[in-house]
Nucleic acid binder design. Sequence first.
DNA 1: TAGATTGTTAATCGATTAACAATC
DNA 2: TAGATTGTTAATCGATTAACAATC
Lengths: 221, 221
Amino acid sequence: MAKQSMIKGASKPIPEPVLRRLPVYYQYLRKLNLESPREYISCAKIAEDLNNLAIQVRKDMEFTGAQGRPKVGYRVTELLKAIEIFLGWDNTTEAYLVGAGNLGFALLGYQGFKDYGLNIIAAFDSSADKIGREVYGKKILPVKKLPDMIRRTGIKIGILTAPASCAQELADAMLGAGIKAIWNFAPVKISVPAGIIVQHENLASSLAVLSKRLALLLAER
Amino acid sequence: MAKQSMIKGASKPIPEPVLRRLPVYYQYLRKLNLESPREYISCAKIAEDLNNLAIQVRKDMEFTGAQGRPKVGYRVTELLKAIEIFLGWDNTTEAYLVGAGNLGFALLGYQGFKDYGLNIIAAFDSSADKIGREVYGKKILPVKKLPDMIRRTGIKIGILTAPASCAQELADAMLGAGIKAIWNFAPVKISVPAGIIVQHENLASSLAVLSKRLALLLAER
DNA sequence: TAGATTGTTAATCGATTAACAATC
DNA sequence: TAGATTGTTAATCGATTAACAATC
């Protein structure tokens, strides 16, 4: 099966690169709103501050359906709203986190998620000295209760921050109980049936880009 | 300034997508070597297991300079070596980590980095109850010693896991002391002069892809 | 030998960028 | 009005995929 770099199914398919840039604009505009608020903004200004091209910003914004006014630009609040709605960040999606290690704790404590419509309801772990604790206001529950909780709450997103060695097993448990999307931070590829979404965060891929760039930079002279 | 999706400066410029896939092959081949070792492997087999196309695997491998034998395939050890050398993972690069919170701890404890030639030498933090502790064998030092340590050791990579509020300030301190590449996990864009490499891990971008895919999936029926 | 698989050149596809008309 | 900026159509560029020759 071929991979899909294009997100299909929508009226207009959205290129993944666009989808990855929209949050960057969103973060930028929110920060701008706090630090030096203004009613309107042009693509040229956004592009300049974010170090890319105005035409790309304009094209990207087109996907969200946001409309600007010639000579004036886009109303900042409208732009923010358009991105929010487009990404589905205007209403909250609930998720469970599985694996309450350091990374799990970091994600539980990340305040940004609520801006992106993601609410981690609870965490699950198998270790007795973690179960029962409360971290950043979120309960750590025994992992054997996970399937039951997923069924009862109908939660669709699982955030997997367990060690590689038990990632597949935990993924299977989640999927069996009705999870539809797994955000996988475990450093291992997990196999899932068709129709299930896996978003794999691979540190090694990022590191490869970083180390190659650095090697080229240092080799320049 | 336009952005560069292509890594320039090498004899043959390497597309970033290729660079991101190479570690996936690497992880796959290493796991294969442990679980069901074999001397040779074909691109078709790799592609099947990783869910992509044989021609893409072959093209990607071409960049590493690895050579296969028609009808036989590639020698697994050679493939691993070729990727290692190509990414510069065959000799160790040292790095400092700045910000010893939960995420910092998670990265300090991540065993995988040594396979990728990255060695985090020490961590820095400003909080008194962290300074002096040792985590996964790595000392936590006072952040005010950071510039001096960078100068003395000549370390070129800084891993930034501090809160957004002090990310820019810490980045400036690192760059002033000679850091050439920053792996930025802080949820904020940092500004750097030309010639400095910043690799920004943006959770919001990944979440956007995940949430849009899930929304489309759930809307299908 | 026949067939599988690599290596390499060509074709396609999609994303980015450019050009320009519309409009405030 | 003139000029800046959007909206939209066209051109370019690069990455992916296909085709096929080379070879073990």
